[in-house]
Design a protein around this nucleic acid. Structure first.
Length: 711
RNA sequence: GGGCCCGUGGUCUAGACGGUUAUGACGCUGCCCUUACAAGGCAGAGGUCCUGAGUUCAAAUCUCAGCGGGCCCACCA
């Protein structure tokens, strides 16, 4: 439903801009590569990636199935993309362009290969981006292990005793009086009998565990920082499959968990363990965009890196040149550039390797490597200069807030470096779709709605109204009630149209008509509505115009105006042919304009009615302009008075359990002089709409506004 | 720990350049077949606009603090 949600937004924007006269370049892309796909295929089809060719085939067919399903959903909601422009990140042309951009980065030294501790998932056997990991809270044990220092016991605390073979130093806090005397000395590791330096550093948390921590290469990011800062050696005791290496001595060949168990037993047996505490802690795990959830390791490996840190200032500057909707989302981008951190490795690898045969890299690239060049792909960068000049920067980037730090960030970064220019004029940021219960959609909560279910139950224009109801940047729940209401609105619109069509059968389309106060009233309100819609749609605010259109059509137009002109339509012999024609003209004009306003939201029903009412396509017509000459303050005031008087009469009938069609013998209105003037001019409308036989209006200085006496 | 967003009748929600009676939906109550629509219409009940303080003639709206919720980031040897 998230895709239905934001693609409806994009489609409304595209349809609106077309009607405003823009030539809208509207391609749809599909993001295909990456770990999420691989994990899905492994899980659902039960295949492993040992057989690379077979695995890739399975990934491609799975992805194509997903694309077909999504494309059908988009077609089902009337998504007006130009399918001939569709791009897929797994297409050869697309991949070629990715490679070109990477080669350009390589030639500039921005892309480089280096050995560096990376976040590594032993289960998926791949390096992960920082954005792909998160912390999972779980139960663990904190082992207090005695080390020896000049005959004294120095007790460290660790949750990972199996990292002992990788220990290269022990750290204490410089202000910690308990351990001050050990600073600069050496500690002896049990089992391995190796001596490591004892170093004082501010980063040690004195309150945690024993206040003494051992540094292993690499247990966490702090270890990386310390290893670099103090130029300590690196000992790799865990390999890329999560198996202990030869450095682990007798534990070599064991898995991490097996080694943890055995080394702990040995330490206990030898009397080196002073205490084991239970501990709830957060373990860095493979959490994002994946169902893996395995704990991750920091393993030094040769990997390809792209230097973003040196260009953050430019990314921020580029982002500031764009319009963000809502504007505070720019702040999230800047926050990200300010807080992202990774100890930099300055190693650059020479490109002149002299290899005779190029061998593809076996690693799985971060999927953002593909998806962050889309503005270049669709604009024909390095392919078609004419197209590029016309379509770059992209006018509007729609996306969710959860991938500002990834999709938006990497896209702005790469396009800025490759083109020297910003890649978007504006960004429209949507929130997440929550379940009907208001909570995040998740399988475990059982509140997931797949698009097929509402699409089966409701028509596309109903789903689109639901989607248009969201606010930029805010999360938005899926709501069956909102769908019900939206569906009923369509029926209402249909019935209004039937009524109007019925009365337009003999309408000659004469424009030169003698409009009455009531006509000016509804036409005035219509002009206000048109400008309200334009102002908001220009800001990509969709919910406010839709609500305003629905309220106008349902309540002002149907509940009030239609009832107020029925007598003129049905009895021209009493009220005059020209009055009837004025009403016909107004009915047609209002409905036409409302159909144009609704067209971006509910294109299907709008076209259907438009075809009968006007002919042709309303989505190809021009967006209406508010005609200020039709706004009459006097008519607005008279119309509101008429609504109020009719409302009083309806209330009376309701209280007396009378039908609204029941006739009233006599109604007397007392009004102050200003209101009385206005009321007198709309007396025929009051009389006819209220089914009043005799209506008397008199001026009274005792009332404020007006009062009614009904018999 | 840092940042951002949010808190409005039973439920969901609009409004946030300060200014009549706070919007609408669902639900609820009563009534009514208006020569379009009962999948409709009319009328009605229901609110300390999270709490407190401040600015102001005036605060749902602005400021600060607190409480509660959400998201992102960081930390947890």
């Amino acid at each position: 439903m998230g895709h239905i949600y934001n693609h409806t937004w994009i489609d409304i924007a595209a349809r609106y801009k077309r009607m405003r006269g823009y030539e809208v370049y509207f391609p749809q892309g599909f993001d295909c590569h990456g770990l999420p796909t691989e994990l899905k295929v492994e899980k659902e089809l039960g295949v492993r990636k040992e057989n690379r060719e077979d695995f890739i085939d399975k990934c491609i067919s799975w992805t194509e199935k997903a694309i077909n399903r999504m494309s059908k959903q988009f077609d089902d909601i009337g998504y007006s993309t130009d399918w001939s422009l569709t791009y897929r990140t797994m297409d050869d042309d697309y991949m070629r362009l990715i490679q070109e951009t990477l080669l350009e980065f390589y030639s500039k030294g921005i892309l480089y290969r280096a050995k560096h501790p990376v976040l590594w998932c032993p289960r998926c056997e791949t390096a992960l981006a920082k954005a792909e990991v998160g912390y999972v809270e779980c139960e663990g044990k904190l082992y207090h292990i005695d080390l020896l220092c000049e005959g004294h016991r120095l007790t460290i605390a660790t949750t990972r005793p199996e990292m002992m073979p990788s220990c290269v130093a022990v750290f204490i806090h410089p202000d910690d009086d308990r351990y001050a005397r050990y600073e600069g000395k050496k500690a002896l590791l049990p089992i391995y009998g190796r001596e490591v330096p004892i170093i004082a550093d501010e980063a040690v948390e004195m309150e945690f565990g024993t206040g003494v921590v051992y540094l292993c290469t690499f247990g966490d990011e702090q270890d990386i920082a310390w290893q670099k800062k103090y130029r300590l050696p690196v000992i790799e005791s865990i390999d890329s499959r999560g198996i202990m290496t030869g450095e682990a001595g007798k534990y070599a060949g064991l898995s991490i968990l097996e080694a943890r168990k055995e080394i702990a037993e040995d330490l206990i047996e030898d009397g080196h363990i002073r205490k084991i505490e239970k501990l709830t802690h957060s373990v860095l795990s493979h959490t994002e965009r994946s169902s893996c959830k395995s704990p991750i390791e920091l393993i030094p490996l040769y990997q390809w890196f792209i230097n973003v840190k040196d260009y953050l200032k430019q990314v921020v500057e580029s982002s500031q040149q764009m319009g963000w909707h809502p504007s505070y989302m720019l702040g999230r981008m800047i926050d990200w550039t300010e807080t992202m951190d990774w100890p930099r490795d300055d190693v650059r690898v020479c490109s002149k390797c002299g290899a005779k045969k190029a061998v593809g890299v076996g690693d799985v690239a971060d999927c953002w490597v593909d998806s962050s060049v889309t503005p270049l792909v669709i604009s024909g960068w390095n392919r078609n200069d004419e197209l590029f000049d016309k379509t770059y920067p992209v006018s509007l980037r729609p996306q969710g807030y959860e991938i500002i730090r990834t999709w938006a960030f990497y896209t702005i970064y790469r396009c800025m470096l490759l083109t020297g220019d910003k890649c978007f004029d504006e960004l429209l940021i949507n929130g997440m779709v929550a379940g009907p219960d208001g909570r995040k959609m998740s399988k475990s909560l059982g509140n997931v709605i797949e698009p097929e279910e509402p699409l089966e139950k409701y028509c596309a224009d109903t789903i689109r109204q639901w989607a248009a109801g969201g606010t930029p940047g805010d999360d938005y729940p899926f709501s069956w009630e909102e769908c019900d209401h939206s569906q009923r609105f369509l029926i209402k619109l249909w019935n209004i149209s039937r009524f109007i069509m019925m009365h337009l059968e003999d309408y000659d389309g004469e424009e030169d008509v003698d409009l009455r106060d009531v006509d000016y009233w509804i036409l005035s309100k219509l002009q206000v509505l048109v400008s309200e819609c334009s102002v908001n749609l220009d800001k990509y605010v969709f919910n406010i115009p839709l609500t305003a259109i629905r309220s106008f059509l349902w309540h002002d137009f149907a509940d009030n105006y239609l009832e107020m002109v029925k007598h003129r339509l049905y009895k021209p012999e009493i009220y005059g042919e020209d009055s009837r024609r004025a009403a016909q003209h107004t009915l047609k004009r209002v409905l036409e304009t409302v159909l144009l306003l609704l067209s971006p939201y509910t294109p299907h029903i709008s076209e259907e009615i438009w075809d009968t009412l006007v002919g042709g396509y309303c989505s190809l017509s021009s967006w209406p302009k508010a005609d200020k000459s039709l706004i009459s303050e006097d008519a607005l005031a008279k119309g509101e008075l008429l609504v109020e008087v009719i409302s009083e009469i309806r209330r009376f009938k309701s209280e007396h359990q009378m039908s609204l069609g029941a006739e009233l013998a006599l109604v007397e209105i007392q009004a102050d002089s200003i209101s009385a003037d206005k009321i007198k001019s709309i007396e025929p409308d009051i009389k006819a709409t209220g089914r009043i036989n005799e209506l008397k209006t008199s001026v009274s200085d005792k009332v404020d506004g007006f009062g009614l006496r009904i018999k």
